[in-house]
Design a protein around this nucleic acid. Structure first.
Lengths: 348, 348
DNA sequence: TTGTATGCGTTATCAG
DNA sequence: CTGATAACGCATACAA
């Protein structure tokens, strides 16, 4: 019977009894603080001692205890990351970018999902703060700018998808307008004149920016803006389906659809399929985001590529700089058009 | 653990510097250790003092410092979670389950991606241990059973997708065989007699189990097993495409395809589409996993539903029990058949 | 350049 | 039941 007992007095043969700085110092024949200095590069240390310490560290397989480090130094080397859903197909990629970049700086991410709920998001911030994270990265949250500013007074904050300026706060916005323009121009160039637009969640600035890109794209081409061709979605596949449903129910004539994200484009594609409308023969379709799965959709989806992984890296990099006390300087990656098989020249 | 602050007259950001136990003790007129006891339920405390302390905690908006707790108590209240890719469409849902369940017990997950690389995975374990996590959950990793057993000697380990028994180790396996059987029977019942199978990564037990389900399903129906109809994939969309490519290039006759996961099924669907083969009219298709997006595929994909969210919850729950020192007792959720529109009765 | 001493916020071990 | 007090492992002023 294999029963785990925690009460017993360690009969387990612990191979590595977690070395401490003290042990390292002893083995290297130096003081405890010298080891600490070498570890943190806090001060210059003689080469000989340095070598001795490094050897001891190696030999003892020493790894600093983050807990003690945090307690003593007031830092935890962990960054809270608030995302809306840890299983989001889009943000997931960004999380990886954050993870990778943070790791370079010796930091670890602490992910929390807010599920698109401002209240929950505020709670995430609380929890994160109670965990004493050294900073918080918010991926396009629902928190008010005001709340964000308040948080930034307590600890460094990086937020994506907004334009915002405040001390201790760094906002990174991506060119949603440009992306929207790109997509619209593509459709226009293909000869489409009646292009429907499925919006994202109205409260999202990125959604309204994409819409603006659509409007300007139309304008550029001298095409009229028809409000009836703009239907509201909420970034979910389901809303994409409903949007097409509404469009056809209302008898709107259109030859192309620009969905504010790939998920809605997929929903739209399904609805079109159900109605016997072929993509792209009967209606062209373009999305936004370029989810990893979009190139395998049937047919492969034309879309606006967002470098989500880079987004994550950039955000993490900004945080690292913020922590170091320097004003972040980052290059924000631009969206680009990806033409696949869901969009084609108009046939009628 | 985190208390939601009531509607008080206090403005948003608490400018007060993080309250400590000492401050609480002072305000409540008791000793520091009494507060600790109440916080942890370590011993019985008189009701009067208890009330006083609770009031002080509320008033000071006190939240224990995890760092100090970790240092003193030797615990961190965080659980390492090793997943293969934080942006995996399938595991992402499980992560949410883990997150939610862990939260109930006052624990936080620390996610790490191993990218299907055993070496990297071993490093994740190291990093996690250096962070002093209280336990590690491994989602279907590549680590050898031996390595896992070794880790379990140091701290509680929960692993999914394996059958394994060791002290300090709890393995949760899901019924991949049953799922494979379900899918195969479905196709057989639809009248299909030449059913192709696209395997997952050969090193994965879950993949081979699904294959076994396929074989037994064939057997049950008195159908011959044709090795030529089994083609190797690696769980990626691309490999699904290649598999169909190979099947058709070799001129194999088949009326249905069972892919060992939805991603490969999607790849297969795309390849079929390119070849002018309609789903399900010309060939029926069924996947495995039931990704969130699968119900919006064109056409919506029939598949074997895996309760991934529950998987995560179950794993986390097992970990919590392991930590408490009790032998985990969990109910493992079963897979179920989801018939959508990619599978239909044979037409020829 | 190096070592010493103090403190970080809790838990745990003792006596009362 | 309750309260001192010693760890916990490290960073950091302060000395040398």
């Amino acid at each position: 019977m294999t029963r785990i007992s925690r009460t017993s007095t360690k009969p387990l043969g612990t191979p590595t009894a977690a070395a401490t700085i003290e042990m390292v110092a002893q083995r290297a024949g130096v003081s405890l603080s010298t080891v600490s200095r070498i570890l943190n590069g806090t001060a210059v240390v003689s080469d000989s001692k340095k070598r001795a310490v490094e050897e001891a560290i190696e030999a003892l397989d020493f790894v600093p205890n983050p807990m003690a480090r945090g307690l003593a130094g007031g830092r935890t080397f962990s960054i809270g990351v608030i995302t809306q859903a840890i299983d989001s197909p889009f943000y997931g990629v960004s999380l990886r970018g954050i993870e990778d970049e943070l790791d370079k700086g010796g930091y670890s991410p602490l992910f929390m999902s807010a599920h698109w709920d401002a209240k929950l998001e505020a709670r995430c911030v609380q929890t994160l703060r109670s965990r004493r994270v050294d900073g918080i990265i918010v991926l396009t949250g629902r928190l008010s700018d005001k709340a964000l500013r308040a948080s930034a007074k307590q600890l460094p904050v990086v937020v994506t998808g907004r334009d915002l300026k405040a001390p201790g706060l760094f906002a990174i916005n991506f060119d949603n307008f440009g992306g929207g323009l790109l997509a619209t121009r593509h459709l226009v160039n293909l000869g489409h004149r009646r292009i429907a637009f499925i919006t994202g969640d109205a409260v999202h600035p990125d959604s309204t920016e994409r819409l603006r890109g659509y409007r300007v794209g139309l304008e550029e081409a001298g095409l009229p803006f028809d409000p009836h061709l703009v239907v509201a979605g909420n970034y979910s596949e389901h809303s994409g389906m409903q949007a097409v449903e509404q469009l056809t129910r209302d008898g709107r004539a259109f030859t192309a659809i620009f969905a504010a994200n790939d998920q809605m484009a997929n929903g739209a594609a399904l609805c079109l399929y159900r109605k016997g409308l072929r993509v792209p023969h009967d209606v062209s379709l373009i999305g936004f985001d370029d989810l990893p799965t979009s190139s395998f959709a049937v047919p492969p989806l034309s879309t606006v590529h967002q470098p989500a992984y880079e987004h994550g890296r950039v955000a993490a990099s900004a945080m690292l700089q913020l922590i170091k006390g320097i004003r972040p300087e980052v290059v924000v990656p631009m969206p680009s058009l990806v033409v696949r098989e869901s969009s084609a020249a108009i046939t009628r």
